[in-house]
Computed example of a mutant assay.
Amino acid sequence: MSATNTETTLSDAQLDQLRVQAKALIGAGAAYPSQAAAARDAGIGESTFAAFLGGTYKGSNQAVGAEVTKWLSAVNERRQIQTILPVAPTFQMTSSAQDMLSVLQWAQTFRDFGLIVGGAGVSKTATCLHYAGTKPQVFMATMRPSSGAIGSMLKQIVRDLKIGERNAGQFSTAIVEKLAVGQSLLIIDEGQHLTSEALDELRTLRDEAKCGLILAGNESILGALEGGGRRAHFAPMFSRVGMRITITKPKDADISAMIAAWGVNDPGEVRFLAGIARKPGALRVLDRTMKFASALAVGAGEARSIDHIRSAYAQLAGAQEAA
């Protein structure tokens, strides 16, 4: 009746049904492009998952079947939530986004060095992703606090650009070869994490590849570009920056566009959301608040209201303060 006191034994027919349901989620146009992607989401080893689906697994099919059952249940729950929640707005062509796109277009067209500096939540990353997703030969790498040094930066670029080179000593050469083809543009997001030396290495990569380069980050990136206390040495780096833009906070028109994209027109809700967008985190926090407020409303079986928005923001703000 059961393998243990708490686990139900699956029959051969039930195991076969699990295989059918799992396979239906995999393939072109399905939820997962490959068995490997599905296995990662399920938390099951790729070889184990493949053997189970093929009916050739020599281990405990009961144990794997239990994991597949949990995974299928989670997938179904996510689908149900997605079908009832309002669709979040896609990329918004705000006034600030248009300004940033101009810098991106310039850098790619003229193989120039551009700079996008902005505060948190002004859509720097969203705009760069939009451009990379809609233009050919645009490559984007996102830096982390651990990516600051030259070697770490090169490793991150190789990973994000899906370059196959494994020899760290050849990373620079492989990156240049990748970018030297066509009218290429390399976008470095979160560039404030890079040291002045790493930024100088980027300058060299661009010079050799003869490609466009965009550095995007917060205001502290300017200090690194100027070289800190070594401004004379790094002056060539800063002087090579062509078109640049600094957006410290979203424009009123940006805020209005994002609020309208969420379908909000109640004056009280508009005022409250505009206030959120003028605080640290700006449009990003506004978007998260609306997603959470929509979920709260759906969970309560109610139409979204200012109460849901206030509650969502209060909980998100509390989580941010606790982090």
Rank of each mutant, 00 (worst) to 15 (best):
D252W: 00
D252V: 04
D252L: 03
D252H: 08
A253W: 01
A253L: 07
D254A: 10
D254W: 00
I255T: 12
I255S: 03
S256T: 15
A257H: 13
A257F: 05
A257L: 07
A257W: 05
M258F: 11
M258Q: 07
M258N: 06
I259E: 01
I259C: 05
I259F: 06
I259H: 01
A260K: 13
A260G: 08
A260V: 03
A260C: 04
A260S: 15
A260H: 09
A261H: 11
A261M: 12
W262F: 11
G263H: 07
V264P: 00
V264D: 02
N265D: 14
N265C: 07
D266Q: 07
D266I: 01
D266M: 03
D266G: 13
P267Q: 05
P267A: 14
G268P: 00
G268Y: 01
G268S: 08
E269L: 05
E269C: 14
E269A: 13
E269D: 15
E269G: 14
V270N: 06
R271K: 12
R271I: 06
R271Y: 02
F272K: 14
F272T: 00
F272L: 09
F272S: 04
L273D: 00
L273M: 09
A274K: 09
A274V: 00
A274G: 11
I276T: 07
I276M: 03
A277N: 10
A277V: 03
A277Y: 06
R278P: 02
K279F: 03
K279A: 14
K279D: 13
P280Y: 08
P280E: 10
P280K: 09
P280C: 11
P280M: 05
G281S: 11
G281N: 15
G281F: 06
G281H: 10
A282R: 13
L283T: 09
L283D: 11
R284S: 10
R284V: 04
V285R: 08
V285A: 11
V285S: 11
L286F: 04
L286Q: 05
L286H: 06
L286A: 06
L286P: 00
D287N: 15
D287T: 13
D287W: 01
D287S: 13
R288Q: 04
R288F: 00
R288H: 03
T289M: 08
T289Q: 12
T289F: 06
M290V: 04
M290P: 04
M290T: 06
M290W: 08
K291S: 06
K291Q: 14
F292W: 04
A293M: 07
S294D: 10
S294W: 09
L296M: 06
A297C: 10
A297T: 07
A297Y: 03
V298Q: 12
V298G: 01
G299K: 00
G299P: 08
A300W: 03
A300T: 02
G301Q: 12
E302F: 05
E302K: 15
E302S: 14
E302M: 04
A303H: 11
A303P: 08
A303N: 15
R304W: 07
S305T: 13
S305H: 12
S305Y: 15
I306C: 11
I306R: 11
I306F: 10
I306N: 12
I306P: 15
D307T: 11
D307L: 04
D307R: 11
H308G: 09
H308C: 09
H308P: 01
H308Y: 09
I309C: 14
R310T: 15
R310G: 12
S311P: 04
S311E: 10
